[in-house]
């Protein structure tokens, strides 16, 4: 069964068509890579799926439910989480608090009940804290729990963002260039980390420009160019796809 179905999604910004009739789906437990040259519309697709900029037309179905036009926090509550291309941590909050905030939708104390500290709230808070520590341990940041998020080095900030996203208990995790700015060994351990999430049956959609990384990580690849899907298939198929080669080569030449 597919966990996410993107159907004929188009997103316009004024006259610019950032997404042009994109359709694809992700199976439960699958890791899908999303590639494409700069400006292809990858981040825009993430924004459409997570409710930041709802699609102009088309529909998005998550776990059998149409989520286009739901507010972002409701989509998160349904089990969809993401990280950002431009890291967006709460820099003034501690590492631990960043992760705890991720658990907002998973705790019962409602917005208003969270005002008071009843024994129930206290217990729940302890539980939240314990789970946050577990996640930090998982991404190797337990020692930094009390530091402010803004003080972490870049690679660790990326991992903290992943931990925070995981704290929302997602079924599908959207990662926007998780390896960007990392060196080779960091990229390697990131890959191991992401693969290890499979044990939870977590599905992932990963945007990445590091081809080695994304090809070896993904079960399937979707390639966008100028907002439209130009290829989809196994890593081997997509790498050999003439439109993909042209898209990348064309851009490389332009860039030179």
């Amino acid at each position: 069964m597919d966990i996410l179905r993107v159907e004929h999604v188009t997103r316009k910004f004024g006259g610019l068509i950032a997404l042009d009739d994109v359709s694809f789906s992700i199976e439960k437990g699958e890791i899908v890579g999303l590639i494409g040259p700069n400006g292809a519309g990858k981040t825009t697709l993430f924004n459409a799926i997570t409710g930041v900029f709802p699609p102009t037309s088309g529909s998005i179905v998550f776990s059998g439910m149409a989520i286009d036009h739901l507010p972002a926090h409701r989509i998160t509550a349904l089990g969809l989480a993401r990280t950002f291309q431009n890291i967006r941590l709460f820099k003034e909050l501690s590492v631990l608090e960043n992760v705890m905030i991720g658990r907002h939708t998973r705790t019962k104390s409602g917005t208003f009940r969270g005002m008071f500290k009843t024994p129930f709230e206290r217990r729940e808070e302890e539980e939240t804290r314990a789970r946050a520590y577990d996640l930090l341990a998982r991404v190797g940041l337990k020692k930094r729990a009390q530091d402010t998020a803004g003080s972490l080095p870049y690679g660790e900030q990326r991992r903290l963002e992943i931990a925070r996203a995981l704290a929302t208990e997602p079924k599908l995790l959207l990662l926007d260039e998780p390896a960007a700015g990392m060196n080779e060994s960091e990229t390697h351990s990131l890959q191991d980390l992401l693969v290890s999430f499979r044990e939870w049956g977590l599905s992932m959609l990963v945007v990445e420009h590091d081809m080695g990384f994304v090809m070896s990580l993904s079960d399937r690849i979707v390639c966008l160019n100028f907002g439209a899907k130009i290829a989809e298939g196994t890593p081997e198929e997509v790498q050999a796809h003439p439109l993909v080669i042209e898209a990348y080569l064309g851009r490389e030449e332009e860039a030179v």
Binding site: Q85, N86, I87, A180, G181, H209, A255
Partner: peptide
């Protein structure tokens, strides 16, 4: 291509 990504990211890093 990767390098270009990285610099861009720093430029529009913080809202």
């Amino acid at each position: 291509m990767m390098k270009r990504q990285a610099t861009e990211k720093f430029v529009n890093n913080n809202k």
